[in-house]
Design a protein around this nucleic acid. Structure first.
Lengths: 226, 226
DNA sequence: GTCTATAGTCGGATAGAC
DNA sequence: GTCTATCCGACTATAGAC
């Protein structure tokens, strides 16, 4: 047996608990998820939560850390790629437009299209709305970076200060236009008459959302576009 | 004593329970909110929940109904006003632009600026993300109407079918760009370094969000704006 | 209509055998 | 490292006095 690549039985138990926790905490929230529910889904004994994570709360923190790590592994390469392209384009308005389209499509791919993300999504949304102490982990390792990069690109495109409130708010409006399809999906599905987004819906969003993002460059401070 | 205008003691108890429930269900969610918590905040006896609402679940439904009614009283007049103006403008592209700016500012006023709305907001967001049976009430009395009106205006502005998926998705992107400032406010606040939106932030959003909404007319089906 | 007292259930955590 | 058995507190709901 290879000591490095083989998982010990304990590691497998831990992983099962985190997987089950991610799904159940997302579906029902922290309080409404019972430890008995979790261990049943994970197929482990109830005492394992105490043993490995010190309790239900510790398991929750571990779940958040795991999510932060997984999201990071998706967005960090994309962010790096965009940053390089942005620098290469001399931080021009044209480079900014290309970069923001790429960023928005990346966000759409990661948060709306990906099946894996559906599990994270609900937990992250809950933390956004009513943060627990664990939100710090998410914010520091994911939100701040992604939001900051988008703000800088939009600032370049709109010719405003990168660290201004205005850049931050514009970036957030762009993010909101994408994530609304996740956080309010029940309403969209009812209006569309479907139970899932289809390829045709994504085709529309792939064009619409980047275009709206680029348009955020143009809002003038003295009135709306005429 | 005037029999019509005076509230009976029972009515007052009911109202106190609904008020307390709205705040606490919003802050902690349904499961995490205990009946003891509610009656303490409402200043009534614990049995009152059973007596007046048949149990915790019944109180929750009553809270949702109350929210739907309050939101309706805000948006129905606005929707009516917009509808009239839209017809009067001959459903032209120009009329659509004016109307959608008005609608977005109305949404911003109601959901982000208003203090009262902060109490609704969390409950509505939770229902959006993980709907309970009570979501039907919200959807039928509020979401469907607001979303439908916005879709029709955008369809007119973008010259597409009012009942098409595309119109629905565009409307939703616009709504998302506004509501993101509510549902992800923790992230925005940390980025801005504040604990509340200020007048200056609203000044920026009052210009930015309507402009982005109007821009949603322009996204071309064959590629992004160049 | 309002209250107290309590029933009955289920939660997370723990002790100790293996 | 895993399991069973059990504790204790918190929960919702109810019965019945006033």
């Amino acid at each position: 047996m290879n000591k490095i690549s083989d998982k010990t039985k304990g590691d497998k138990t831990k992983q099962n608990l985190i997987d089950a926790g991610m799904e159940l905490f997302g579906e029902h929230g922290f309080t409404a998820t019972g430890t008995r529910m979790i261990v049943q889904k994970a197929g482990v004994n109830i005492s394992a939560i105490q043993y490995y994570f010190g309790g239900k709360e510790g398991l929750y923190r571990a779940v958040i850390e795991h999510i932060a790590e997984r999201i990071g592994s998706h967005i960090n390469p994309l962010a790096e790629e965009i940053k390089v392209e942005f620098e290469k384009g001399g931080k021009s308005r044209e480079a900014a437009a290309v970069c923001i389209e790429k960023a928005v499509r990346g966000l759409l791919n990661m948060m709306i299209k990906s099946r894996e993300a559906r599990k994270w999504a609900l937990i992250v949304m809950r933390e956004q709305a009513i943060p627990t102490p664990a939100f710090d982990i998410l914010y520091d390792s994911v939100m701040a970076k992604a939001h900051g990069l988008l703000s800088r690109i939009i600032a370049a495109g709109a010719c405003i200060e990168p660290d201004s409130d205005e850049a931050c708010l514009r970036a957030h409006a762009v993010i909101g236009s994408v994530l609304g399809f996740l956080s309010a999906k029940e309403t969209v599905f009812r209006r569309l008459g479907t139970a899932e987004y289809t390829k045709e819906h994504f085709r529309i969003l792939d064009v619409l959302l980047p275009a709206m993002a680029v348009s955020s460059f143009n809002a003038e401070a003295d009135g709306a576009a005429k």
